[in-house]
Nucleic acid binder design. Structure first.
Lengths: 341, 341
DNA sequence: ATCAACACCGAAAACGTTTTCGAAAATACC
DNA sequence: GGTATTTTCGAAAACGTTTTCGGTGTTGAT
């Protein structure tokens, strides 16, 4: 009824706990005979080591923590998928926590994971995050740590990112190529690095193509929702009816834009072309199908875990570790919302 | 540099480990003076108990396991959200594992969690699951266990479900009310209980309204994908052009149906009315907006954890536990895809 | 026969906490 | 002053594993 322990195996076999442990862990100094006896008995009792005891003894739990803004999100759930898969392949489990885009909560979650003594932490910053203290604390305690997507440039840790600026640049140039001359940008919140970078890419593309930048054409999301897309579409139509192209921070918001334009009879792509970001699934099923920038979310998860594992392992040997940054490629997906008129 | 332990606090204060532990855990038999000294020192050293040691000693980890078919899924990610939230409120963390709709993997994940000695397991069955052994093993080891949504009726554990049969019945009656007389059903795979129940609800609604049941009008999904929706829509149009209503197992597939009909110019809802299931977000942004059955996914997660916690706690006192089943309400969401012609 | 080399085993410490139980010290009571 | 009671403390066991280190006993070489 109760859990099988090394002690019980040792007693029924009339040998010491030490030998049982060694037999199970393939130590060389145990005879084939006793090894077989131990293995057989362990098998028949379906012994599994008490992970609590193993954790305490080895000081590791083969568990990592993951903090993301929200689970219900096409991009993040794909990253989770990649992380969980890769982690499991390497014998690690993952605890998932949400920050709900709140700095306060994010700090709490970091603390929770540190107290839990996870072997490492993977994280994507919340939109509110403009404070580094909790991140520095992770480094101070030398807990293996990697950030992905929404990162802080000031924290020296491993990172998995895309080149947001370049990707945004390409997206806007795509619009220009398709004939747009007055291009609005619905950008993300002020804090996140990638919202800033995408905005910079937008600006640079205009610059390079001799289109004057007009700050009135930039709309800033607070919560990055479908409803905000609808709202900004309304405002753009009212304030700048001659806008002929819109680069939107992410597909969810872009879909809101499409919804409004569809409703009021503004034709896409005839009157306005729209391009989103992240290649959400819904983008290919709405009307018109939304052009977007594909972001390798699953791979981002895989690489994030790989970097974390690298840090975990080298920190076990040496004391130090040199963080690495992996930059993944993006790709413009051209669909109906930017097709030539 | 190294982690603070009770021992260190005890030594610098010149008292015993026991007393330090007691002071921190508010035992009555420690004087106010020493308690304050301990608390102050612990505070200033930012002591946190070593959870590995606590786990070993208390035989619990305040961590639960969650196994679902896939993370990248509107319904499941919402359930995850509910579980994580409620768990955290109660001081529990959650480890998430995917079965990828494979029975083999599902079994492996169960084993993994048991070896990890989580305090409990929450689970939704994979579509392949037609074998109970691994579930019975959970009960045998007396690990607190609750299933949600895709359950096994044969396993006596707590459950959180909707009344799939009733919900399906209502959905089909909704179609009938709107004038449909020849109604097809795109159903889920053969194993899952809720695919069966929804099919039964479909049949019952036809029955009650004196519409003859025709097994040729029932199409069975294998993978429950968008592409299958497209495929079945194609076949329905070809094989039964006079079908005027379709009840689809889930929104994702229904959206595939809409996509095909849109493409070939079959008007929805004029020629065919379509109703889905689960109220995925995308359903309200496509054209035409999809009618569906709303399923309280977040609440499902919350209730699942509550039931698990109930079991964890009562099993700590008594040895036994009587499982409970919670049935959540669903609601028809009427949108354009079933609006009156 | 002696010694070295080797194969096999086990005692014991360690990981850091929780909790029981008894002892000592302080206080109360008469 | 003596006894009874309460307050405060600490020794020690326990949770189950891993790993070091030394101790047998056996084999092989000379």
């Amino acid at each position: 009824m109760r859990d099988i322990t090394l002690k019980q195996i040792a007693e029924t076999l009339g040998i010491s706990i030490t030998t049982v442990s060694k037999a199970l862990k393939n130590y060389p100094d145990v005879s084939p005979k006793t090894r077989k006896a131990v293995l057989d008995l362990a098998q028949s009792l379906s012994y599994t080591p008490n992970s609590f005891a193993v954790n305490l003894r080895t000081k590791e739990s083969r568990t990592i923590g993951l903090i993301i803004p929200e689970v219900v999100h096409h991009f993040f759930s794909n990253v989770i998928n990649g992380i969980i898969d890769e982690a499991e392949k390497n014998g690690y489990l993952v605890i998932i926590l949400q920050s709900n885009e709140s700095l306060e909560l994010e700090k709490k979650q970091v603390e929770l994971l540190m107290n839990k003594r996870v072997d490492g932490i993977i994280m994507s910053l919340s939109n509110e995050s403009n404070d580094d203290e909790h991140l520095k604390e992770i480094l101070r305690k030398e807990v293996p740590f990697v950030m992905f997507d929404k990162i802080s440039k000031l924290i020296p840790c491993s990172k998995v990112i895309i080149n947001d600026q370049k990707a945004a640049f390409n997206a806007v140039e795509h619009l220009i190529q398709k004939g747009c001359r007055k291009i609005a940008h619905i950008r993300g919140p002020v804090n996140p690095q990638n919202a800033i970078d995408r905005f910079l890419g937008y600006k640079k593309a205009l610059d390079k193509n001799n289109i004057p930048f007009d700050s009135k054409l930039v709309y800033t999301c607070k919560n990055v929702t479908f409803d905000e897309g609808v709202e900004f579409a309304k405002r753009i139509a009212a304030e700048h009816p001659d806008v002929d192209g819109i680069f939107v921070i992410t597909d969810l918001v872009a879909v809101g834009v499409l919804a409004h334009f569809n409703e009021v009879g503004i034709n896409i792509p005839e009157q306005v072309k729209v391009i989103g970001f992240s290649n959400w699934f819904m983008s290919q099923v709405i009307t018109p199908k939304l052009s977007t920038v594909d972001q390798p979310s699953f791979e981002m998860g895989v690489h994030s875990f790989k970097l974390l594992l690298e840090e975990i392992n080298t920190k076990k040997e040496l004391h130090s570790f040199h963080p690495r940054t992996i930059e993944l490629e993006t790709e413009i997906i051209e669909r109906e919302s930017t097709s030539e008129s």
